[in-house]
Simulated scan of single mutants.
Amino acid sequence: MEVKVLVLISLGLLLSLAEAQQEHPATSVKKCSGSKPFPLEVRVHNCVTPPCQIVKGTTQKFEIDFAVDKYITQLTTLVKATTLGIITVPYELPADVAAVCPNLQYGAYCPLYPTEDVSYLFTFPIGEYPEIGVKIEIYLVDQDNEIATCFVCDIKVVKGNGGNTVYELDYLN
């Protein structure tokens, strides 16, 4: 009886995940430098091929599917932003936004166990920044300050008029 219930629950979770992936197709993101663990899949809402146009003053949703290779009790999101190809700064997140465990999807929760794969909904607040291209690195860091997964995504911050106007800086003139 218990096995049947577990199979039905697992099947339901897989169907929910498949529906979400159809609604938001995978986004082409890049690996971080070094041998940091890469997500199974990333879905940036409304973006398949970066640079993703992100409206300033809004929030952008990222769905990050990843597997863990150790027992994890806590995960925190860290973001670094690089502009002009040379200036890299940490992008400060509010504590409730940086907390991964409360934002796991499809019934997942912490602690996470080795070989478990989960989906995390990261709601990324985009400040009132100039309309420029930015490379963002998103890290999920565990309780031991080790990286559980990491990826890089190019974005362009755009005005809130539906994203039709993109301003790029021209440094040659």
Rank of each mutant, 00 (worst) to 15 (best):
Q143I: 05
S119G: 07
T58V: 01
Y91D: 05
E2N: 12
I64N: 07
A148H: 05
C110N: 01
C32G: 03
E63Q: 15
T82S: 09
D65Y: 10
I9N: 12
K61M: 11
G127R: 11
V44P: 03
L84A: 14
I54Q: 01
I132Q: 11
I138E: 02
K70E: 13
I64Q: 05
L84V: 08
I147F: 10
L8A: 15
P37G: 08
N46S: 14
S35G: 09
N103I: 00
L121C: 03
F124K: 04
A99V: 03
K31V: 12
Y106Q: 09
F151M: 02
L8I: 09
L84W: 15
K56H: 11
Q21N: 10
S28K: 15
I87S: 14
V157R: 05
Q60L: 01
P125Q: 04
G34W: 00
L140D: 05
K61F: 13
V157D: 04
A26T: 09
K159F: 06
L112V: 05
V134Y: 06
T83D: 03
P50W: 06
E23P: 05
V55S: 05
D117E: 09
Q22A: 10
G162P: 01
P125Y: 08
S119A: 15
L14Y: 07
N173K: 11
D144V: 03
V42K: 04
V158S: 04
D142I: 04
G160V: 00
T49Q: 13
E116Q: 15
Y129M: 14
E128V: 15
I87R: 11
P114M: 07
T27H: 06
I155S: 03
T73Q: 13
K4A: 14
E131L: 03
E116K: 13
E137M: 02
H24I: 08
D154V: 00
L8E: 15
T83V: 10
P51C: 06
A18E: 07
K30L: 04
D96Q: 12
I147C: 05
E128P: 01
V89M: 14
V89T: 14
R43C: 14
P39R: 03
V7W: 10
Q21G: 07
L78I: 12
S28C: 08
I147R: 05
T82C: 09
Y129K: 13
P25A: 14
L121W: 02
T123E: 15
L15C: 09
A81R: 12
V166A: 00
C47N: 02
P130H: 06
S33Y: 10
Q21C: 07
L121D: 02
I126N: 03
K80C: 07
Q105V: 07
C150S: 10
T88P: 06
V42S: 03
F122Y: 11
Q105W: 00
T165W: 03
A98V: 07
C52L: 01
P114T: 10
G12C: 08
S33A: 12
I126H: 02
N164M: 13
L15G: 07
T82N: 02
